[in-house]
Structures are given as C-alpha cells and as structure tokens.
Design a protein around this nucleic acid. Sequence first.
DNA 1: TTGAAAGCGATACCAC
DNA 2: GTGGTATCGCTTTCAA
Lengths: 334, 334
Amino acid sequence: MARSGVTKGRDATRDDVARLAGVSSAVVSYVVNDGPRPVAAATKARVLEAIDKLGYRPNNAARSLITGRSDLIGLVVPDVENQYFATLAKAVERAAAKRGVRLVLGQAQPDYLPAMVESLAGHQVDGIITATPPPPDLIARTGRLTIPLVKLSLDMSMDAVPSLSPDFYGGTQGAVRHLAEVHGHRRIALITGGSPMDIRERAWVDALHGMGLTPDCRVHAEWSTPGGRAAATQLLTRYPDATAVFVAADQQAVGLISGLYAAGRRIPDDIAVASFDGSLTARFTVPPLTTVGVPFDAMAHDAVAQVLGATVERKVYPTTLIIRQSCGCPPESV
Amino acid sequence: MARSGVTKGRDATRDDVARLAGVSSAVVSYVVNDGPRPVAAATKARVLEAIDKLGYRPNNAARSLITGRSDLIGLVVPDVENQYFATLAKAVERAAAKRGVRLVLGQAQPDYLPAMVESLAGHQVDGIITATPPPPDLIARTGRLTIPLVKLSLDMSMDAVPSLSPDFYGGTQGAVRHLAEVHGHRRIALITGGSPMDIRERAWVDALHGMGLTPDCRVHAEWSTPGGRAAATQLLTRYPDATAVFVAADQQAVGLISGLYAAGRRIPDDIAVASFDGSLTARFTVPPLTTVGVPFDAMAHDAVAQVLGATVERKVYPTTLIIRQSCGCPPESV
DNA sequence: TTGAAAGCGATACCAC
DNA sequence: GTGGTATCGCTTTCAA
C-alpha cells in the first residue's frame, strides 16, 4: 500500500538520539529545549547531527504529560462554514501559531458546548476560546473546570466567563445614525438573530429613540445567510415602508441582499442596508456592503494571550464604520 | 482573578478515582475503556460514581503515550477564511467528530507545509489531511514521515501522496458545455488560479476544442475573492468580446461578479458566468451563481477514514452542475 | 474478577 | 558540563 513517506517502523525517540550521539538522554533534552542546563558546543553539535540523521521529533504527548502544557488550545465555534467564524478561526489560528501553539477546532452548538469542552480538556488543551455562547449551567455540566476559558466576540452576559468582544453597542449606534443622519432615513428596520434584546438590538432601539424615531420594525432570523434571506421576505411583507435596514451580521446581510434582489428591490435606492462584522465577504457583495468593522486580529491575539496565562479578563474593542455603497454613499467616497 | 470554573488545583487522576472507589487503578481503566477485562457490575458502579464525584477525565496525553494513538488528526489549509476551505474544514471536522476524533487546524502555504506537517506530527496526530498542495520535496524536507497523509481536493499530481478530489475535469467540461450548448456562447473565457495548466484549464481547453471553439481567452488570478475581482479588469480589458466566463473557483467568481458589477456589466445579460465548487456563498450572489457542486461530505468522510487507517487510496468524486441564474437560465428553472 | 507492575517518551532535579 | 533517575497518567500483560 502506498502510505506516504518512508515508513521506518517506529519514530526515533530521544533515547535513540542519545545512543547515537553517545550522550545521555538528559543532554538531548537540554539541547532540544535550550536548557535548563548548558551544553558544550561540541556535544551539542553531535546531538544535533544525530537528531537530524534520525529525523527525531520530540513526542508532545510525553512532554505534555510531564510539563502539564500541551501547546494546544481549543477553539469552539458553532459553524466554521459561516464566514464570520471562519474569519475568527483564521485570526485565532494565526495568533496561536505566532506563539508556537496549535489550534484544536471544534464545532458545537450551545447545547453541546459542555461536552465539547470536556473533550477538549481531555486532550489537555492549555485553554479554550469559545465563540459559541455557553449555556448558563456550563460549569455545572462540565464538572470542575480547571482550564482557562474565554468567550470571544459574544455578548457579555452575567456568567463568570471572561469575555472579549467588539463594541456591539457603539458600533451599532454608529451605523444606525449614519443611516439616519447622513442619508435621512426615518424608517430604519432591524434584522438580528439575537436572543430577545441582544446588545445590538438595544443599541438600535436607543439610537432611534435618541433621534426621535420609532424602533418598531424588527425581524428576527437565524444568524446565517439563509436566515438573512428569509428575513428579506419578512421585512418586505411586514414593513413595506422601511427605507433602510440595519443587519446585525454580515452573513445575514448577504442573504438579505440576495432576497431583496430576488424581490426586485434595488439597493440602496429602494432600501439602504448597513451591517455588522466587517467580514471579507462584505467587500464583494453587490453593491458593496457598509458594515461595522471588528478588529479580529487584536481580539484573537488577546484571546490567545489570555487563555495562555496573561490576564486580560474582559475587554471591549472599538469598531470602525466601513462606508461602502449599500447605505447610499457614492462609490468613491472612501 | 476570575478564572472560569471551580479551580480545584490539579485535575483528578485515575489513581484518585481508584482510591475513592476502593479498587485498583487497573479496574478504573477497565471501566473507562470497557475492557479489555470484564468488571463486576457492582464494582463498576462504584467506579462510575467516583469518576462522577471527582469529575475525572482521562488524560489523553498519557493515553496517547502508551497507545500510540491521539485521536487527533491534522487538517492543513492555506486559509480558512476562504469560503472553500471553510466548507472543507467544516466537513472534515464533522466527519472526524463522528469518529470521536478531534481536528487540529493549521494554516500554511505550500512553502510552509513541511514545517506544519512536522509540527502536527510532533503533536502525535494520527494522520494529516492537507488541502494545501505539498511541495515536490515534501518528504525530503520532513525527514521520515511515518504518519498517514492524504491530499484533499487538490489536483492529482505525480507525487506519492494519496489524493481524494472532485472530478475537476468532468465538472468543468459540463459547465463549459452548458454555457455553449444551452446558451449558445462562442467566446467563453476562463479564469483560474491554477499553476500553468491545472486540470480545470485542460478541461476547458478540451471542451472548447471539442465544440470547434477556440480556447484563447484566459486569465490567471489569485485563488481568492480579491483575485477574482482583479481578474474582472483583466477580462474586460483583454477580451472585451467574451460573452461568457468559466471561473475555476466560486471564491474567484464572487470577486469577478463584484468587479463586473462595478464596471457596469450585467450578469448574465452582458456576460454569463459559471463556476466551480458549489460553495454556500454561490447560492447568495447577485445573481445566484451556476456552479459545479462538489460532494464535500463524502470526500471529508473518506479522507478521515483514510488517514485513520482504512485504505481508500485515491479517488475522484463525481460533481453535479448546479444551475442557477448567472449562466442565463431562468430563475425558476430548477 | 481484580491487582501489581512494567513501561510509553520526555523533563528536571541531584549528583558527579 | 554531563549523567542517573524519579515521575507524569495511563494501558495492559501476568498472577492471584
């Protein structure tokens, strides 16, 4: 059978290297880890040569067993196919790689999160970052949890789990105001997937109230592109007089645009759209989507640092309104 | 500091459980693994109770050390943010989870693949699935490679690595023929990111030749949405008379559509588009994209099975042409 | 049906 | 500067 590579039976171990180099296994360890004891240059060279010749590669399981660290962190998302989580995963993987840590990716809906956490913990990950909202009884359901857990890009809630998230409130308000103040819309609908009154919904309500408008056109839909597509129908049926929409996630906005287009509506002429996330896809919709940009890299960086021991605790990241054309701004206005 | 969960110092070990249950640690093992020796029902109950009370969770690193298996497999992609790889990652994660295996996700360009493989191997993954094309000297550059490696959704090439891929050739031909035979196009351009003459390019050439047409409008671009966007300009400049395009990847098609739209072209009226991948996003472009559907789940399932020991070797998966409107077909033709 | 004990591969402390 | 060696948590023969 054509297994790949040269199959030399069992991998070389540290003892093999020690034997070939004519040193003790401890020395091999010192060389591999640059410490904790010094090694003579000549000895070191011999060891390195042996390592190379044998194709020796330290066994992380063994190392992990004794050090208690695995250089693995877990990331849980509901669905990586969703562009938003894909972007998050990319950022987290990059941030982890920069620290020499590998990412174990798990997909789980909230219900299954406790089991997923258990599973990852069993694999000795050094920490877990979750973009899937933890059920209230997470801790109860996972026995004692001795490994760091941090929520990434989720509404902050009352649970004890540290949380890193974009400024949902401020970002949303900025976008809604842009629609009203720059483009003069008075009937600005909301599409969200949030549980009753997530932060974005609250921000939309407050923003409209603040401008003397009435927050009465809202439709809830799945946090996904098909969900946004379905929302288009709802919107058109229930609020035919809305002239603008704020969508809580780019993914939904993509579906919304598709639905609006299918219904013969023009964006932004018939209806203006602004959204939240600043995902890659928003640059390439037709027309390009005005959206609230989220600092994925900074958040991912801090999330990794946090589960790995630094203490960031909870933090809110500033967003930036990315103006494109779905809101009614001209093409070259950037 | 507000670390999450109850921190009870060190996790409970199998010995703790044994002590509490008043049995030997071997018995705990028998219970946890349902073998290899039988355990009396009463004893088992006591052990289970102790496990539960202590929140005991087997240490995978230790287990891996002795069994040689880690229940971890590696997946390498160039970029998970790219919708195509996100879809692949989702499918592979699901397939792995079904077998009780977790996924270690790595992002690496071809150049860095050998190092990534080394790193994953160090983490004792049971096998590696790569959607990043291996450089020709992968084996040479990774020392001996004793772990299963399989290429997923990549052109088959001459290297020794087993490969699972969609029917790039047949799928492409089908789409190109559809453009010509159903819609009557005679000038069908190609946009691809392939190295000189990837399979899709060859299929496009052959298909056109087979119909007495000339394959002379081709533009190469990055395998990404921005790449597709850039390709739009190229296409319009160099081949203004092309009335249809076949795009080698949905990602590029999304960018192309965006670029065409920005240039004031109507799809499919001014120019028809068909693409390859059948990704989620293709359903929601404006207009919806006609694309060659790839059986992601079947491929992912087999890839996991293969790296885990079953022997599928190499295989080509049939594709299906998903007719939507970018090619010129009517909305309700499905 | 249960227990004792030998490792799996690597780290790090303690002598030399 | 280098070499023994106990130890990490678990699986699995082998005896009892």
